[in-house]
């Protein structure tokens, strides 16, 4: 792959991650700027410190925003923003 193709591929993931961060900040009414959250940041316990109620809120928000139902998914999909991006944008996972 050329560097331009790699940049385009990275940009698609970063765009999806950015969309997820904005959704989380908005839905959970967080005080931080969305970009302050890193793609690899843990979401539960450590990191963003979300709890099980936040997960329920995120299930609803993700389905509304991305049309993806995660209700039966393992907690691993919430391992990081980037991991969540793989779920809501399957093209990222297929290309990985």
């Amino acid at each position: 792959m050329t560097i331009d193709e790699l940049r385009a591929k990275a940009a698609e993931r970063q765009q999806t991650c950015s969309q997820i961060k904005k959704m989380i900040v908005s839905r959970l009414d967080l005080e931080v700027e969305p970009d302050w959250i890193t793609d690899d940041q843990p979401l539960f316990g450590r990191g963003l410190e979300l709890d099980s109620l936040d997960v329920l809120e995120l299930y609803v928000a993700i389905e509304a925003e991305f049309g993806v139902a995660l209700y039966d998914s393992e907690m691993a999909v919430f391992g990081s923003i980037s991991r969540l991006a793989d779920e809501v944008n399957p093209r990222l996972r297929a290309a990985a």
Partner: peptide
Amino acid sequence: GLAAAGLELTVEGADVTTLTSPYIVPKSW
């Protein structure tokens, strides 16, 4: 602009792939 998972890069002649965190899912989850 290239700090993203799923990219094929090269380190000292070896092909490497950038990753989505966590790289191993803890069993405790």
